[in-house]
């Protein structure tokens, strides 16, 4: 019950945040240099054409009216029409967001699979070679710009070794998508039982996901290590060991569980990093997700596209943070649901 109240409180707090987010999205596009009417009409537009399109877009109205219209449209589920893709923004988002979510999630899974064990081992065996390797990995992973690692990985794994598939799209060129259920290619492949598309999608996503994971592995390793070390030094671990419980049991049953709590809070931050990283990753790997969409909308002055995409990213990010917090509240016996 107290957990429910906590969740309700958090949901209430979301309202002002999301309102603020809409204001940011709205004002962001209005500050962008250039007027979308010129872009839509291309270089051959006359002044009358421009005025006509401005009216069509509602850009001749005062700002506050435009905002009210925008807010009203959002509440009615209408995100507008994206000129640079020639279809409703809602359709664009449906087609593009699932891929980025998958990409970010796979990157996060890789990060956790590699980073957490590495951090645990480093903490348990401080000063060992694992510890040193982990430190080197942690620091170098962060040091390289993603767009650079991405291209290097493509060069070696696609071009030289031919292990990775061509960096264009998420499926082999002539492969048909499985029927869309969730929009996520991996999930849809599983639902359709289509292992061919599943394998193709995995092989297309693995290099971008590794590129995205490299800078994150460092943070998670460092986090796990310090949190684990802290727990290992805590009184109860010492007490448990002193009472003759096998150290392995203590480490991997009791200590690990407690040490992973702060790691859970880290997931939200990393997810935000991964979502932002998709902008660069998708451009480098020729993927069609929300990163490339946000970028395309911004560069093409696509008001509705920018508003829709940025709003959607923010909503997803906020939701993930909320989930993480709830998860944390759920698994941490100490939290007071303040």
């Amino acid at each position: 019950m107290r957990l429910l109240i906590y969740i309700a409180r958090r949901l209430l707090l979301l309202i002002p945040t999301l309102l603020g987010v809409t204001i940011v999205c709205f004002s962001l596009v209005r500050v962008l240099p250039g007027n979308p009417a010129y872009f839509i009409l291309g270089p051959y537009a006359t002044e009358e054409d421009i005025e006509q399109v401005k009216t069509e877009l509602g850009l001749d109205k005062p700002l506050y009216q435009q905002y009210v219209i925008y807010l009203n449209d959002i509440l009615h589920g209408d995100l507008g029409y994206a000129w640079h893709t020639s279809q409703p923004v809602a359709d664009d988002l449906k087609q593009r967001f699932p891929l980025s979510i998958e990409l970010a999630t796979i990157a996060l899974i890789i990060t956790l699979i590699v980073g957490v064990p590495l951090g645990v081992v480093s903490a348990v065996k401080r000063g060992s070679w694992v510890d040193n390797v982990a430190r080197v990995l942690a620091v170098t992973g962060v040091s390289m710009p993603m767009f650079w690692t991405g291209l290097v990985l493509i060069y070696f794994f696609f071009f030289r070794l031919r292990w990775a598939p061509p960096p264009m799209g998420v499926l082999d060129v002539l492969m048909e998508r499985p029927p869309t259920v969730t929009g996520m290619i991996l999930v849809d492949s599983i639902i359709a039982g289509n292992w061919e598309t599943f394998g193709s999608a995995i092989s297309h996503l693995i290099l971008p996901a590794i590129t995205l994971a490299l800078p994150m592995i460092g943070s998670i390793t460092r986090m796990t290590r310090s949190s684990m070390a802290e727990v290992l030094h805590s009184d109860y671990v010492r007490t448990a060991t002193a009472f003759g419980l096998p150290r392995r049991t203590v480490i991997y049953r009791d200590a690990l569980q407690n040490a992973l709590l702060p790691v859970v809070t880290m997931i939200g931050v990393l997810y935000g990093f991964a979502l932002g990283g998709t902008v660069l990753i998708e451009m480098i790997f020729g993927l069609t997700g929300m990163g490339s969409y946000s970028f395309g909308s911004i560069m093409n002055m696509d008001y509705a596209g920018v508003q829709g995409a940025v709003l959607m990213v923010a909503v997803i990010f906020v939701m993930i943070n909320l989930l993480v917090d709830i998860l944390y509240a759920f698994i941490d016996p100490r939290i007071s649901y303040g």
């Binding site: 699979i113 064990p117 590495l118 092989s203």
Partner: peptide
Amino acid sequence: APRVLSLLGVAILLSMLLPLAAA
């Protein structure tokens, strides 16, 4: 135990790389 754990991590990573070779 840590060695097993790290091996596990490496193994999982490698298994994720396998589809690359297939494609």
